[in-house]
Amino acid sequence: MAQSPSEPIEEMFQNLRTAVGECILEWAVVEFHLALMFHTLIGGNPPVSHGVFGAIRSFEARLQMLHMAVVNSYTDEADTIRTDWKLLYNYCTSMSQLRNQVAHATALNVDGKEVVLEPFFNLTKEREKISTAEIKDRSVRFRELATTLWWITDQMERRTMPLGGSARPVPDLLLRLRTEAAQRRAKHGRPP
């Protein structure tokens, strides 16, 4: 009969499970904001636009469908919504990979000292482990992404209908992505 895990290890497993649950729930908010953005672009009856968006099971396919809706709605290459969206589209793609590592991982007890996730676990190839702290960091990054998606959707809505109040400031995530993109362009000698 297997020995029951010690209390500290069981507590570590519980902390890991809690962090995983919070991380996945934060990602669900990202997907919800992408659906809201799709509805903002397509318009019409919300159950129809959300139903169409949700009918696509693959996240990558949904994101590509939204991308096509954005670039075909904002055709001016210099439009800030279009350029900001392109940055967010790429960021969403990379964050989706981080989400998948958490969602498709196995919890492991490492030498009775720590509990970690191993993404896409199998016995033939060891992969880099993900700590509880890293999972919590991903949750924060997903929350920041959701807030930024909310912001850009608000910018889209402000173009089509008068909204009361002042526009919210540009989120820090988008400011960082803009700065990184400008640095890449400068590094390769391309205009800003």
Rank of each mutant, 00 (worst) to 15 (best):
K125V: 11
I135G: 01
R138E: 00
L177C: 07
I130A: 06
E22R: 12
I130L: 15
R143G: 08
M65T: 15
L16F: 04
V71W: 01
N45A: 07
F59V: 09
P171C: 06
L87G: 06
T179C: 03
L145M: 15
E22G: 15
S96K: 05
N122Y: 05
L34C: 07
E126M: 15
T179L: 06
L25E: 07
I9M: 12
A55G: 15
S49Y: 05
P191I: 06
H188I: 11
E118T: 09
I56A: 02
S139G: 15
Y91C: 03
M12K: 14
G21C: 00
L177H: 11
V140G: 01
T132V: 11
A61K: 13
D154H: 05
V170T: 15
F142D: 04
L16P: 00
N90I: 02
D76G: 03
M161R: 14
P162N: 11
T160C: 00
A55D: 03
G189N: 08
S6F: 01
Q97W: 05
L174T: 02
A182S: 13
V71S: 10
S94G: 01
L173S: 04
F120L: 12
E180C: 00
P47Q: 12
M1F: 09
R158V: 13
H67P: 07
L36S: 00
I130D: 01
R82V: 00
A61C: 01
A78H: 15
Q155Y: 00
G54N: 15
L117M: 07
L163R: 13
V48E: 11
R17Y: 12
Q97L: 14
Q97Y: 04
K113F: 05
